[in-house]
Amino acid sequence: MARIKEKAYEWVFTALAFSSLIFLVGIVIVLFKEGFPIFKAVKAGDFLFGRFWYPTYEPPEFGIFPLILASFWVTLGALLVCVPLGVGSALYLNEMASFRQRSVLKPMVEILASIPSVVYGFFGMMIVAPVLQDLLHIPTGLCAFSASLVLGIMATPTVCSIAEDALSYVPKSFREASFAVGANRWQTLTKVVIPAAGSGISTAIILGMSRAVGETMTVLMVAGGSAVIPKSIFDPVRPMTSAIAAEMGEAPMGSMHYHSLFAIALILFLITFAFNIAAEIISRRFRIKLGHSG
């Protein structure tokens, strides 16, 4: 009797443990099922590389190239902000800060990570955009540049925490060996610690990128929302996520517009999925390299 009860518990936990897998597969199925009909109306090539996104015109055009470009530029811009800031902060925390400084600064970085994205978007809209508009004399502050900046700030804590983890994996003995041959702390850092943590840091960057490309509210509020191919970084743009968020409310269920938004989500999912898998593979190798298993 007791043994049956034990087995029952084990089975319940095993079954529930598969929930994550079920949801992940469910998401894939839903995106395929709801997104695929668009390819009956538009060829995949035209969908991906079409230059015009006029989903509500008559006849509509479903070319998401402007949206992909927007996502690409905004993400790239965000990386230029979050990689130096995030990795730099991680290096500071791990290599320079005293124990006391660390125990104050690290929670602050985590707090920065817990601020909701809509608050970042709001901040970008109310503060960053007007300031940049005045400062740079551009027609509108709600543009790819501002979005990149705000998104970069937002992704900084993600990059910082993961990079910090990677740095803490580097064995103390590496550093000691370097000091022992007369290297100073900076040389040890750039020649020993950073190379040793290199793939761990690249994991951090990939995950930061994944976060930036999938972020919705910030770009929706700050990027300006114009779905044309941008000519400069100061043009308003509409990245993939904001197209979905802004248009789904108006797209009649079951219409081609509705299906096209699901197809965009599918592409987005595949991009972030690829990033996550890449990050996982790299970090697994990294741990094995430094002699940590699992």
């Binding site: 598969f18 995950l207 972020e215 968020a245 999912f269 996550n276």
Partner: peptide
Amino acid sequence: NIIRMSINNLAGVPSVVFGLFGLAVFVK
């Protein structure tokens, strides 16, 4: 390994995609 991978990937799914999943599955 499959479960761990699912959890990691689920954590990386963009939030707006969860929104669409919810719309298609729970709402509709």
